[in-house]
Amino acid sequence: MSLQSHPPETTLSDDGTTAAVCPYCDRPFVTERQRALHVGERHNATEAERRAYEAARDAESDELFRLHLKVIFAVGLLYAASIVGGVVAFSLPG
């Protein structure tokens, strides 16, 4: 359930890219996948839209997995940096 009662204000990009538009609330999306996810989550989707939603969710899962790998890598880096930083900080004179 969404907090917003209306679709958000939107402007298309300057280069005039054709957007995917929600057939229910006219909200434009940058990618077809965003629209499929939006329709599946926010509206009473038809059978075809339901299948498009499932496909988009699968495709997104792969991207999310890569994103989470990056996050874990960044956390590890941050952790290593803070240990190095801590060691340096404690070994400094004064």
Binding site: Q4, P8, R33, Q34, G40, E41, R42, E60
Partner: peptide, 11 residues
């Protein structure tokens, strides 16, 4: 998560 659909776009 309320404004955007899916899981990647909100992040």
């Amino acid at each position: 998560f309320d404004l955007f659909a899916g899981r990647v776009q909100p992040i």
